[in-house]
Design a protein around this nucleic acid. Structure first.
Lengths: 226, 226
DNA sequence: ACCTGAACACCGTTCAAGT
DNA sequence: ACCTGAACACCGTTCAAGT
């Protein structure tokens, strides 16, 4: 009975959109962005391509659903009795870490905006912007600037990590930064005077700290404009 | 003589990396991100796939080179006798408009960071951050926050435009925003109270103005922290 | 040195056929 | 209603063969 044996492979779970999305997330996490194909997915779920298409319209819908699951998990717990600034930082770090753990989410958020995932982030941030006392006319700008910054930096960070892993696997982050900083230090002192001077800062910086420092910069600007 | 006739198709120009990159840019602009394939490219250049691979290592190198050309053009003219703030705004708008005109550049900058294109933007911004009087220790954070914001928002904007064009072709921007705002206005008042309240702001906002307002927010934060 | 174009190893998606 | 898996129309890339 091949059918029984195959069903057993996904532990008796019936095929459903949820099962499919979770298998997709696992493939994306383990094998990377290119690791998810309808062939790897049908193999893992021990089924045919048509079965997946019965539950899901196409690959894009699958990616959107997977992104929603990860972002929802990242936003799952809300910090109570925190200042608006602390709460905004918490959301930012939550999204940052989620994208760091699932780099493909960064690609996805950069490509298909204003779906559920992004809306949830916007809502979370926006409430805290209101709590900050920003007048109504400035709330849209403040919230969307923060969201854009968060998604932009986090995605770029993830892309960096993927590129680094691709070109120099098994290289510790520190070694990679040192190598890149060495490259900056060798740049032309005329055309790239600033970048060159930043080589040291690049080598010693911490992505998360830097990310949060940028959030604080925007928060300071929001408070100053208030 | 088929060879002569084919050469004539690209107006006597010999095949070179430059010719190839320019043809790629044209395809990307006219046909969109998916419009560039080695088949459309060989058809346009009236040659074989191997000819292109002789000049270019792979599709990724082609995309990177195309991005560099567009960004270099966007940064071509530097504003003289401008305040640092004005100069930063000018760079930001230049990149924004370039990505708006060539949406595929946004995707590219979000995926393959720290290549020439991004480095050039970083350098331009960084010099003005220095001119702003930011102490050395804060320059890296300030410059990379600005660059991240610029690329993040501009890319998201481009992705939005592409999505809109894809799903609702021939719909004016205003109609699209109105439809989206109507969607926001219908959101659940509990879970999405903030987003719902922003429906009006979404409908009436201008992407460029909003983008610049975010830049000003960060600039205000940088000046406040100085 | 540079170009040709068929061939290879993949994709996402469809669909007649099964249960 | 749900699943199977072969088939279709594509991809990027390679490579023996030409000039």
């Amino acid at each position: 009975m091949p059918t029984r044996a195959r069903r057993a492979d996904r532990r008796g779970e019936a095929l459903s959109k949820e099962t499919i999305v979770h298998a997709a997330i696992e493939l994306l996490d383990v094998e990377g962005e290119d690791g998810l194909t309808f062939r790897t997915l049908t193999a893992r779920l021990a089924t045919g391509a048509g079965a997946i298409y019965w539950h899901v319209a196409n690959k894009d819908e699958l990616l959107v659903a997977a992104t929603d699951v990860v972002v929802a998990a990242a936003l799952a717990h809300e910090a109570r009795d925190a200042t608006p600034q602390e709460a905004i930082r918490a959301v930012a770090i939550g999204v940052f870490d989620a994208i760091d753990a699932h780099p493909w989410v960064g690609t996805q958020l950069a490509r298909a905006p204003w779906r559920t995932a992004m809306l949830d982030i916007f809502e979370r941030i926006g409430r805290r912007v209101q709590a900050l006392g920003v007048p109504h006319a400035g709330q849209f700008t403040a919230a969307s600037s923060l969201v854009s910054y968060i998604l932009g930096v986090a995605s770029q960070n993830a892309a960096n990590a993927v590129t680094a892993r691709l070109h120099l696997p098994d290289t510790p982050r520190g070694d990679f930064l040192a190598a890149m900083a060495a490259g900056w230090a060798k740049l032309d002192g005329g055309a790239y005077a600033f970048t060159r001077a930043m080589a040291g800062a690049l080598r010693d910086h911490d992505d998360r700290t830097e990310f949060l420092a940028g959030i604080d910069l925007i928060l300071a600007g929001i408070v100053a404009a208030r």
